[in-house]
Design a protein around this nucleic acid. Structure first.
Ligand SMILES: [Mn+2]
Ligand SMILES: [Mn+2]
Ligand SMILES: [Zn+2]
Ligand SMILES: [Zn+2]
Lengths: 132, 132
DNA sequence: ACAGCTATTTAGAACCATTATAAACTACAA
DNA sequence: TTGTAGTTTATAATGGTTCTAAATAGCTGT
């Protein structure tokens, strides 16, 4: 399996639940955005025996901590995750709550002129809200 | 009262609850960021007879719809609001969950080169996450 | 292969911010 | 004043997320 080493090297035991979730998340042509509920549906579509919702949450958070997933800051009652972990930005379609990647090259370089004492910049994220 | 007309002109009846909330939100030297729970505390500090939490939610949403408040997109279990309704951006201190205004002039002009068919850009917001 | 240990999974309960409900109250216009 | 629609309120319901603690599974050393 192609994800066993990835997990072991991260100090995560390659359980069959995690391997299945890796398949769903990372074995795709394109990266994508998802909520935990959407991920649960994708997992159910893939297999017959289900994975507990608690495990899905555990795994998503474990992967996020290891840097294999990112959370996207949007106003929603659900948390949005991204399998695209490169530096990039987002369109947010207010109509249907869907996100669209906005590559760094599609946004001019962002230069934050102000500094905050004793703090380092961890990330700079642009959210472009779309309406009709 | 200075907020009676503002409310009437917005089609909102100037109830004593709304007027009190206006005082807390808008009668300040500086704008500020808040969650509904923080606002509830500020209101309790100001008066003895309390305002129902449901009314606080109702009012915040009414003011947001009228454009007197903005919601700020961050990853948190609580919704962050802003009494600063000008176009601007934010630092987000991951340590304590506090927001700091980042004026447009402290960020270079942001030029979104990509267009989405049939959609208009409603807002462009930059979130700069801070760590130690 | 086995034992022992720790990590992980799981069902279900708990949590908690937010929203819905529906009855009492209030601003306002006729 | 009176009627009506708008508003407030206590309280219940909702729903995403986290917690719990018991069962299970991966791993290391023998
Ligand atoms: Mn998380
Ligand atoms: Mn709102
Ligand atoms: Zn993305
Ligand atoms: Zn602000």
């Amino acid at each position: 399996m192609k994800y066993i080493d990835k997990l072991r090297n991260s100090g995560l035991r390659p359980t069959k639940q995690r391997l299945l979730i890796c398949e769903v998340l990372f074995n795709n042509e394109k990266t994508f955005h998802f909520t935990v509920n959407e991920l649960e549906r994708k997992i159910k579509d893939k297999i017959n025996n289900k994975i507990s919702l608690a495990t899905i949450y555990n795994t998503v958070h474990a992967f996020e901590k290891k840097g294999y997933l990112k959370q996207i800051p949007v106003n929603s009652n659900q948390t949005y995750f991204d399998t695209n972990i490169t530096d990039h930005h987002h369109f947010y379609n207010l109509k249907d709550g869907k996100l669209i990647d906005l590559e760094n090259s599609d946004v001019g370089p962002i230069n934050i002129k102000r500094k905050i004492d004793g703090k380092k910049i961890k990330s700079i994220e642009v959210l472009v809200k779309l309406e009709d």
